[in-house]
Design a protein around this nucleic acid. Structure first.
Lengths: 237, 237
DNA sequence: TATTATATCTTGTATATACAAGTTGTGCAA
DNA sequence: TTGCACAACTTGTATATACAAGATATAATA
């Protein structure tokens, strides 16, 4: 059974993107949508609240839901999205170079991932090339308790696809941190830095459905190619 | 009438922060909370969903709500928070230097803010000093249609407090963008850059309840003092 | 004319019920 | 002992109803 409020949400997103309701106009009221989709008002409200959360509309009590004009051609580091998913969304010519796949026992990393006794950690280093330039250096560390096998083909394609579809693991949430650092020797060797004296680093701790930490990763970006877009709501008491 | 689900949310946050339920333990079930707070399950669920959104808990179907161990001493650029609110949260010795207050008609800025004919725009430049170092340069532009008067005291204290409490305007949402730029001459003069050749710039478009754009701002940070923390959930299908 | 009340829209909150679906432990049966 | 079915939890979805509260146009009133 499909979730009704999600299919309604998807349908509304599609219609907003195809200008059925242009920016700064009002959506049909919740009651109208209720009859239109033949459902209850609460279900419509779940879909609308999702739209509001993701910046598609703004709800005004007593008035209705205003369609917002958000620039959709952004580079969302927000959320948990794999590079493959990102590249597909952006229609960019991109390529992945697998630089290293190994099993390590580095104290600094193993402490973070806290694997069980005598277990191991996968280290994967990949370079992301966008329109011919080496822009991003991705360093991923996976707890081998959860990811027993990791082939070069998988790393070339999409590790997340492999983890979710083949291994059947469910990625649940992540803590992300963005900082600016000086390039390491590795950054200088792997990336086309072109004299830039900083890299933007996105550090992520990724957790599974059972709240176990299974991945730590650093995504190191050339600063002039980095852009982060966010949508925020003011919280009032 | 106070909103029940918000008071429950606040109460649960307080209890989580004071270790009533330590990290990685389960909250009482929704039914237990229902009787405990003498309310309905849906109301409890609203409070719990807020907790999940803000990274306090992770809900697992069939099991319960796990308390997460999130580092609370972070620098949340996420959300719409004024510098004063931020500084209060962090217990940092901080000071604000009002560098400039003026009324301008700059084409580039006025185009962004789209004020009515012959109206004007406030420009406010402030330097944020944290533990003695000039770290942040805040440049704010306000549509004078909404903010008629702006005193130095207000800029020294909190513009948002003035706008929300005194002017009675309701700040609703914002689009934020984070990029890395080379320092301008102004950056070099106002900030203690100490040789850093980049600044992190947070550009914000802030909107009121009626979806009108009333503020554009650039918050320019010394890169080594910048940190952005985010909590993200994996969206499936 | 100008102002005020009112009716009628809108969204927000609170409650109740029913069932679906995932997790876990108990106990029975092979 | 081992395995399986089942009962008893948990959270997720869908529906219905009632009232609160903000916005707006219309009609009544001063």
């Amino acid at each position: 059974m499909k979730k009704k409020y999600l299919t309604i949400y998807d349908d509304l997103v599609k219609k907003i993107q195809s200008d059925v309701w242009p920016a700064s106009t009002l959506l049909p009221s919740e009651n109208e949508l209720t009859t239109e989709y033949d459902t209850s008002r609460e279900t419509i409200r779940k879909a609308l609240n999702l739209l509001a959360q993701n910046g598609y509309i703004h709800k005004i009590r007593g008035k209705g839901s205003v369609v917002l004009d958000i620039n959709k051609f952004s580079f969302p580091v927000s959320g948990i999205v794999s590079f493959k998913e990102l590249a597909q969304q952006m229609n960019q010519t991109s390529e992945t170079i697998v630089e290293e796949i190994s099993v390590i026992e580095d104290k600094a990393v193993t402490d973070k991932l806290q694997p069980s006794e005598q277990s191991q950690i996968w280290k994967v280093v990949r370079i992301r090339e966008i329109s011919g330039e080496k822009i991003i250096l991705d360093k991923d560390f996976f707890n081998a308790d959860y990811v027993p096998i990791l082939s070069k083909e998988t790393c070339q394609n999409s590790i997340y696809e492999y983890i979710e579809n083949d291994l059947g693991l469910t990625i649940a949430y992540a803590e992300k941190e963005i900082v600016v650092e000086e390039p390491t020797q590795e950054d200088r060797e792997c990336l086309d830095l072109e004299g830039h004296s900083n890299v933007v680093v996105i550090k992520s701790h990724v957790y599974l459905e059972d709240t176990s930490l299974f991945q730590y990763s650093e995504s190191r970006h050339r600063p002039d190619k980095f852009r982060f877009v966010d949508f925020a709501r003011r919280v009032k008491n």
